[in-house]
Design a protein around this nucleic acid. Sequence first.
RNA 1: GGUGCCGUACCCAAGUGGUAAGGGACAGGUCUGCAAAACCUCUAUGCAUCGGUUCGAAUCCGAUCGGCACCUCCA
Length: 468
Amino acid sequence: MNLSIYNTMSREIEPFVPLNEKNVGMYCCGPTVYNFAHIGNLRTYIFEDVLHRILTYNNYQLTHVMNITDVGHLSDDGDEGEDKMVRRSHESGKSVYEIADLYTKAFFEDTNALNIITPDITCKATEHIEHMINLIKRLEEGGHTYISGGNVYFSIDTFPEYGRLARLNLDQLNSGARIEIDENKKNPKDFVLWFTKSKFDNQAMRWPSPWGIGYPGWHIECSAMSMHYLGESFDIHCGGIDHVSVHHTNEIAQSEAATNKPWVKYWVHGEFLINETGKMSKSKGEFLTIPFLKDKGYDPLDYRYFCLLGHYRSQLVFSWTSLDAARSGRRNLMKLVSALSKENEKSVAEITDQKSLSYLQEFEQHINTDLHIPQALATLWTLLKDENVSDEDKRALCSHMDTIFALDLLKEEKEVKIPEQIYALLEKRAQAKIEKKYQEADEVRAIIEEMGYVIKDTKDGPIITKIV
RNA sequence: GGUGCCGUACCCAAGUGGUAAGGGACAGGUCUGCAAAACCUCUAUGCAUCGGUUCGAAUCCGAUCGGCACCUCCA
């Protein structure tokens, strides 16, 4: 089975052919840790996790690298605007390093809760300043830079390929329409490699460099770190769709101008989670987080399931109604799986039944064709409802498919301890029912429900469960 | 102003030339003192609108309307 994936560079679904046989390098743009990640941010990491799992599924030896941007970003490319990390630091009274640690930790708590596999290498920008400086030196030697107003700029006119990924039409771009043009730039699309001047006198993060004490521009960190860990050419670079036209475009310019060779083979971008008013954004202030969802009674995996229901290249519309639908759907899925007989454990390799094998093939075809996870999930549902497939085959297939979905399909539900008090009330209701005092029985049931438990009457007597 | 994506049932959402996946919700049924739960069954002659190509169109082409994103830090 061959893997194919959509490449933003060609705008086509291409067969996946790695640069080096079985060893695959993948770099994913990570979080800027100046605030909590919202569920829109996390959608992208879920998609990257699925890609990670599919590559591993196909027996590739994957090296997955993700950066942690713990250097502050200015709110624009000029030497204007506010540094987000610094602002956060002022607001909270913590140091910028404390801020970064706090939100880095929170980020990984979120991704762990979502069953996202931690990348093989996670690297902090602040620990790779030297690599960035070396890369800027190479660019300088190649004549791709100039110094203006104290900052080092990349000159896009020295890189004829500039804008190919985003198919930018440089003549028609309306630079400066929304922000003021940096007067130091020769070309409005030039960008900063190294800042030496800052309007923040108390800028905590500063490093010495050949151009003076300062800090790196935003784009250089990804180029420097990805090449440090994956080499000067590697297979896959992922990120959110918003990065296509600026961040990734600039990364390509820097990297290829420095090395004079092709940098990344496959560009893979995840679309946004949106709501009625458009995209969720940190700068708008109000946004949803995983801890918030948990407080509202959702399992983080409800959100993961919700994301898997849509294709990664389509915008996904968030609403509480659709999250509820995902939660119900996931619970029903878990019920179907847990109802399967647990006798005769077997692995997929031991499956011989043609019908079962056809489900396996269908599943593989879906996941290997540009991550068609929604169809793969439909295959799972159809399989579970198919009366012609044995329970042991179903369990084996579920376990196998869950290496991609990561929904903890076979995880047993935790036993919830029911307080003695509730059992006493249950007894009271049973007695009332025997005496046909139904009004009293209903009243007791209402009390039990108020205490957070729900009664299900079955042929074998009442079952009590905790309301989630 | 430039660029890209999208519009499928009550909701979410697959499907890119061969006659509309899947989930949720709703409704009906079985069960029940009632309810909940469980189980079973059902739900788009039609895919924004109009026109065209074709034996055949949700799928291709054109126009119109509507939505979203990017060209600012953003996943």
